[in-house]
Design a binder for these strands. Sequence first.
DNA 1: ATATATAGATTACACGTGTAGTTGAAAAAA
DNA 2: TTTTTTCAACTACACGTGTAATCTATATAT
Lengths: 125, 125
Amino acid sequence: MNEVPQISNSELKIMKVLWKKAPATANDIMDHLSKSTDWKPTTIKTLLSRLVKKEAIDFEEENRTYYYYPLVKEKEYVKAEGTSFLKRVYGGALTVMIANFLETEELSDEDIDELKTILNKKKER
Amino acid sequence: MNEVPQISNSELKIMKVLWKKAPATANDIMDHLSKSTDWKPTTIKTLLSRLVKKEAIDFEEENRTYYYYPLVKEKEYVKAEGTSFLKRVYGGALTVMIANFLETEELSDEDIDELKTILNKKKER
DNA sequence: ATATATAGATTACACGTGTAGTTGAAAAAA
DNA sequence: TTTTTTCAACTACACGTGTAATCTATATAT
């Protein structure tokens, strides 16, 4: 479990596609992202190259085409980002952070029940 | 309630000092931060200037010295960052995010009780 | 066999950021 | 009054990022 490299916002969009479906070619990714961005194909190539360099992804070649797949797992990334956010904004105070989200955001009754269930399970153990 | 400007990591350290105690001079800030960073005074000046430009802070002059104070409130910043993090990493799924934090981080029994209390209050309303 | 399309590699370029050094003007000290 | 200190302003400079355009080599179509 190596360090999770820094992944920029644009790069993250690529990662998300690969986490959903890999291996994928640059064109596959282009298709996925054409709805939400208007990136040119070269932009995607650039981002892919940078991600390879950072060892966030890797690829295998077949007939002059690269099939990319993630090296960094989504779980790892999410964990790392969460920890970093927690530290940067809340100085690491998890409870404060969660309390803050609970208080300032909208939650349905179902959401609330779900979270309570998790809390209960957590306590038992 | 204007938009919260982009505040970088280094700038955030300055903001945190000002949120704790304002108005403050560059030297005051230097003192506060000398324990946790080894920034040169000019670095702090630069960051202060950038924050003024972004209208995250402002200042009043007295005897050729600037007394800085925040324009962006901590609450506003924290809210904005939280929302942005939530969207970027979790696609906006608050419950998923909280559930994830609850599951992967350590929580004391007291923490758990506190959070449950918040949830209960939330539901009543 | 030659022209064209295609994939990846290389180059580009502006803007934000981290981190200062230098300059200029005013205040304080000598 | 001349020197020194002290602010803030201006300049610097490398690196990451967002976003491509161009180049090069191969594959494909004619």
